[in-house]
């Protein structure tokens, strides 16, 4: 049976791991290579790096980190943040990333997703959708870490990226990100019901029950979390044992 994945996400800025509270207040939580190694040894099913300043600073730092991490971690590594061109993807994959996650560039032109998935295969193309609730049962796609609204309906956009060859959707609720109040389960449910590709839940995890909700109530194939893991509140193993005790199938 396919296991539900737990993915720690490391937000990286200037070569250091940080996690923003609603993307503003940043705290330093250590060296990304070392952290990734700890996570993969500790049972993480995948590792995710999000280069949060990639849009306006030079990208060589993240390439270097990916290269070092990939030599030590033998679980899948996804890298996102500032992926705008085919060359960006080539550079990250050559450095050792297994998947890249595309956000703004996919919103700007969904054909970029098609081009990328044709060239590299759907297996390595993740589309990151940042969504914010705008009214009852309506969510809109945002870009630039939640600063720019796009007027695009999140559900429609999710269907579009699937049609254009995305292998997975990384769905972040901008309302919940950094709040520790749990995933937006309603949003997750509507997206997982409307698409046939795996959805990774993101944004808002504060307790282990939130992971359970994302998988069982939201229908997510994988759950991504940042701060609950890197400030040592929970170990990956504890999260998995907890889910297992509630009959959620995980890789122990």
């Amino acid at each position: 049976m396919l296991k539900n994945r737990i993915i720690p996400c490391l937000d990286v800025k200037n070569g250091r791991v940080v996690k923003g509270i609603n993307f503003v207040e940043l705290k330093d939580a250590g060296d990304p290579v070392e952290q990734a190694k700890i996570y993969s040894d500790g049972g993480a099913d995948e590792i995710c790096f999000l280069d949060i300043t990639a849009s306006n600073e030079n990208r060589d730092t993240i390439i270097d980190i990916v290269r070092k991490t990939a030599k030590e971690c033998f679980v899948p590594l996804t890298v996102g943040g500032g992926v705008r061109t085919i060359q960006n993807i080539t550079d990250l994959l050559l450095a050792g990333a297994d998947k890249v996650s595309i956000n703004t560039a996919a919103v700007k032109d969904v054909r970029f997703v098609l081009e990328a998935s044709k060239k590299f295969g759907s297996q390595c193309i993740v589309v990151a959708i940042d969504a914010k609730k705008i009214s009852d049962k309506k969510w809109e796609v945002f870009t630039h870490g939640g600063r720019n609204k796009t007027g695009i309906d999140a559900v429609e956009f999710a269907k579009q990226v699937e049609t254009n060859g995305a292998g997975e959707i990384l769905l972040t609720s901008m309302d919940r990100d950094g709040t520790k109040s749990g995933y937006d389960v309603e949003l997750l449910k509507v997206i997982t019901d409307s698409t046939n590709i795996p959805v990774i839940a993101s944004g808002g995890v504060g307790t282990l029950d939130h992971l359970y909700d994302g998988i069982i109530k939201g229908g997510a194939s994988a759950v991504l979390a940042a701060s609950i893991f890197h400030y040592g509140e929970y170990k990956i193993k504890e999260a998995k044992e907890y889910l297992n005790s509630k009959n959620v199938s995980v890789r122990l």
């Binding site: 396919l2 296991k3 099913d45 046939n196 795996p198």
Partner: peptide, 16 residues
């Protein structure tokens, strides 16, 4: 055969 969408594709992740 994903049984009409019952199983998501790609088959991604850890399996026994």
């Amino acid at each position: 055969d994903n049984q009409n969408g019952k199983f998501k594709l790609p088959h991604i992740g850890w399996n026994e």
